[in-house]
Simulated assay, not measured.
Amino acid sequence: MRYRDRTQSPTSPSTASSLLDRVKLRDGHAWLRLVHVYGPLVYWWCRRDGLQPDDAADVAQEVFTVLVAKISDFRRDRQEDTFRGWLRTITRNKLRDHFRLAARSVPGQGGSDANRLLAQIPQVLPQTPSHSDIDAAEQYVLDQNVVELVRTSVELPTWQAFWMVGVQGRPVADVADELGMTPAAVYKAKYRVIRRFRQELGNLPD
C-alpha cells in the first residue's frame, strides 16, 4: 500500500472503546482506518526529512510493518507517552536505517566519507522538533486526513449541506433550496457530520 494514495475509507463500527483498542484486537477495519489517518503523517515525516516520494512511501510501508507487529507493545506508562510520539520514534528508526543503507551503498564513498555521512543522521533526524510549529504542522496533516475520512463516509448531499452551512455560513433556507432538501434535512445533515467528526476525533489515539 502506498500511503500517499488514500483510496480506502473504512467506516465499519466496532464495540471496542477506541481505535487503538480495536487495532490491538486485530480489527481489520480499525487497522485500515489507522493507516488512512496516520499513513499520510508518516509519509509527511519522511518527505520532511529529505526522502524522495518513492523512498518515503517505501519507508512508510516499513513503519507500518513494524507497527502491526509491535502494536501490543505500546503503553502509556508516563503522562507524556503518546501514540503519535511512539509512531514518530518508529519512523525515526526506520529513517536511520534508510540513511545508513544509503551511506553504505554510495559507490566509492567509504572510510571517513561514509562515516561523515552517518554522523549527519542525528542532525537530519533530531530527537525533538527543532521548530515550535512542527507539532502544529503534524496536527494539520492529521486534521486533513480526518476531514477526508469523514467526507468520504457520508453521502455527497449530506457533506454539501454541512459544508455550506457549517463552514461557509450560508443561510439554511438558501442551502435547502439549492440542494433540493428541506431545512430540517439540512440541519440533520449538518449535525450528522459534526457527530461523525466527534466520533473520529474521539477515537484517535493520543
Rank of each mutant, 00 (worst) to 15 (best):
A57I: 00
S105C: 09
Q120T: 07
D206N: 14
Q123H: 13
Q79S: 11
R48V: 05
P171V: 07
D81N: 12
L34K: 05
D177L: 12
I90G: 01
L87Y: 05
L179G: 04
A16H: 10
G110V: 05
D77H: 07
R151M: 04
Q199F: 07
R2D: 10
E80A: 13
W45H: 04
D81A: 12
E138G: 01
T91S: 14
R195H: 12
W163K: 06
S18G: 09
E148K: 08
T7I: 12
Q8I: 11
P205T: 05
L156D: 05
V35F: 04
I71H: 14
A103E: 05
V59L: 11
L179R: 03
P122H: 11
P183V: 05
V165L: 07
Q139P: 00
L19F: 11
A56I: 06
L101W: 01
R76W: 00
P126H: 03
M181E: 09
P107W: 10
L67W: 08
F99P: 04
R76Y: 04
T91A: 15
L101C: 00
S132T: 08
G50D: 09
Q61M: 10
D49P: 00
D135A: 15
A119S: 15
R22E: 14
S105A: 15
P40I: 05
A102Q: 13
F83P: 02
R170V: 01
D73K: 14
R22Y: 01
R196L: 11
P10H: 02
G110H: 11
A114T: 10
I90D: 03
K190W: 00
D54H: 07
V172I: 15
D174Q: 14
D113E: 15
R22A: 15
Q127V: 12
E148S: 11
H36G: 09
F162Q: 04
R170H: 10
H131N: 05
R47L: 14
A185L: 03
S112M: 10
H36A: 13
R33A: 06
R192K: 15
H36T: 06
S130V: 15
E148Q: 13
Q61P: 00
M181K: 08
D21S: 13
G110W: 06
Q52T: 14
D27M: 12
T7K: 09
G180N: 09
G180H: 10
E178P: 01
A173Y: 02
P157W: 02
W163E: 11
L20C: 07
P183Q: 03
R26M: 09
V35E: 07
Q160S: 11
Q127F: 09
S14W: 13
G110P: 01
H29A: 15
A119H: 09
S132C: 03
I71L: 08
W163P: 00
L20Y: 06
G110I: 02
G202E: 02
S17V: 12
A30I: 03
A161E: 03
F197I: 02
R2M: 03
V63H: 07
L142F: 03
E148F: 00
F83M: 12
K70D: 13
Q123S: 13
L156A: 09
W86M: 08
L67E: 02
S72C: 05
A184I: 07
R196V: 01
P13K: 08
A60W: 00
N93T: 09
C46L: 07
T65P: 00
P122K: 11
T15L: 10
V165I: 09
L117V: 02
C46K: 05
